[in-house]
Design a protein around this nucleic acid. Structure first.
Lengths: 313, 313
DNA sequence: CCGGATTCTGCTCATATGAGCAGAGAGCCC
DNA sequence: GGGCTCTCTGCTCATATGAGCAGAATCCGG
């Protein structure tokens, strides 16, 4: 076992082996290899930096804290949650969002949510009793017309139930054909009350949609494929709360935006706790738009999306 | 960032993340997650044990110290070197053997070696100046008849040259047809002198051969395929220094063994520093025989072979 | 519901460890 | 060769950490 190692990298490796595999003390290692314990310590630090020693946390619910820190710093977010890649990515990200919501302090009295598959997943992953008396408010329309109508309302109801609180649904279409109709609906007492609560929510939890023919807004009949194609031509990268935005986070079609019912983008921007949940390659462009334009304060996503967001642009 | 985690495993994961990814102190982590620092420490230990935290040393010349320890303990070896799996396994193991020899203290004044591909590889990987004046003695015959005659002698010469010493070759066939001839050769002054030095070497470095038609002893014409097949039928698993052994490390054919020139197995067993270098699946049975029967004091091998050796038998 | 066993808790204290520093050495430009 | 910077070395010292312990909590078979 006595040894005098010549090659300095080899020395580092041997030290790492003795320290991490055999867990000897740095002092002992120094004695064995004939170097001072400080050198051992320094070499160990370098081994970790150079990646000779790789420390990995193996768990489906593990997070990528390095990426999270970078996201916070780069985009001035209050928080970021990045999960490692997995088979069922949507589910893992939804779980992470659920965990985040559960751990969120102060617990929001009123939580504004959008709807869609992602939000529904989050709802399913929330534990019963994640809060004790939250009011959940839908912040964008779409209940009635939606084929997935069931889902849209049950999402809110489920989140509320598990948080031992009430759900407040927004009884309105997502987009109206005429501006007058939209104004009229907005001024209806029931709708106005909901929108008012939505505007004053303590936190928002929402996802974003991709601007292509598969969009739910197309699927549900609010828009035709041609409309979306036209929006894309104008620079749309996706939608947030039913509102199509460009890469800078601005509405691509102000007229359309005017006819969309629900919380406005500026109101969302004004919030201190707007949580974006987004996963998957298709959503990279929207995610980038939302994060860079300050539409969210917290982002929950997967490591690939995080890496894309962090690419020098 | 504030959080109160319920699920205990989740807590462990979060702690591991904060400790290893963010390198916060256990104290800080305790404060963040609302647990005592001792609990943090204990959970961290468990995380490592349970494999939630995996620490890996990534380097071609890294070793598997856990397996090495087990080998030492199980078989009463003075030492063991186990290298991770790689493309060029033979080369990695040879490198490891070369490293081991270089680091061996006290430096042997006389080193006995066998010959073959493995030993040749080791010779190539030794650095010039690995020792300062070693005498290298061949411990088994085979020089003259061997097609690889060049290799056999150059191996010894190269090891000696790089150790700034002299090589002593054994000028004899490996196996003789008649016992009388063998006795006669052995009593020849030149041969006897070499065998004497071989018997008194400070350390031995050798490999082992597989008992099948591909054996060098067949290739070189000492044995016929039928002979090897017969030996296998009698229980041969491979050869050490040209001597065929069974799973218990005993000669399978005493008559044949008698006619084999070179260091005897008992002499090898008596040595305090007999280093076996062995790699690859084909050699698992011989490796097992050698290691379990006390023919070696040190084994240098790959992790798969090590795992096989450590299997409960 | 009870005792016994096992696990969990918070603690003390000795030890291991890294930050920071000043001097030594190596490389390098003139 | 002389001065310059940059890295490397061995050190002091404050701090982080784990072993070991005794009491608390929990589990479990009767």
């Amino acid at each position: 076992m006595s040894a005098l190692i010549t090659d300095p990298e080899m020395l580092t490796v041997r030290i790492a082996e003795l320290y991490y595999d055999e867990n000897k003390t740095q002092d002992e290692i120094g004695a064995i290899l004939g170097v001072t314990r400080w050198k051992v310590g320094r070499l160990l630090t370098r081994a970790r930096e150079k990646g000779i020693v790789r420390i990995e946390i193996v768990h489906p619910r593990a997070r990528r804290l390095g990426a999270e820190r970078e996201l916070r710093e780069r985009f001035g977010l209050t928080d970021a949650v990045v999960v490692p890649l997995a088979e069922d990515l949507r589910s893992v990200v939804a779980q992470a969002a659920a965990d985040y919501l559960t751990a969120l302090r102060p617990v929001p009295r009123t939580l504004g949510i959008s709807w869609g598959r992602t939000l529904d997943d989050v709802a399913h992953h929330l534990p019963t009793g994640w809060a004790n008396g939250v009011n959940v408010v839908q912040i964008n329309g779409g209940v009635s017309l939606n084929k997935r109508a069931g889902t849209a309302s049950t999402t809110a109801v489920e989140i509320a139930r598990k948080g031992r609180g009430q759900a407040v649904l927004l009884p309105s279409p997502a987009i109206l054909e005429r501006l007058e109709t939209k104004r009229a609906i907005e001024s209806d007492r029931t709708v106005a009350a909901v929108l008012d609560r939505a505007a004053r929510a303590d936190a928002y939890l929402y996802s974003a949609g991709v601007a292509d023919e598969s969009s739910v807004l197309v699927e549900t009949g609010y828009l035709r494929q041609e409309d979306v194609a036209e929006l894309v031509r104008k620079g749309a990268v996706g939608d947030v709360l039913g509102r199509y935005i460009d890469a800078n986070g601005n509405p691509v079609d102000p007229g359309l935006d005017e006819r969309t019912v629900g919380l406005g983008l500026d109101e969302l921007r004004r919030s201190a706790t707007a949580i974006l949940v987004v996963a998957g390659e298709a959503k990279h462009p929207v995610a980038r738009a939302v994060v860079t334009s300050g539409l969210c304060d917290v982002v929950v996503t997967d490591e690939v999306t995080a890496a894309v967001l962090l690419e020098e642009s």
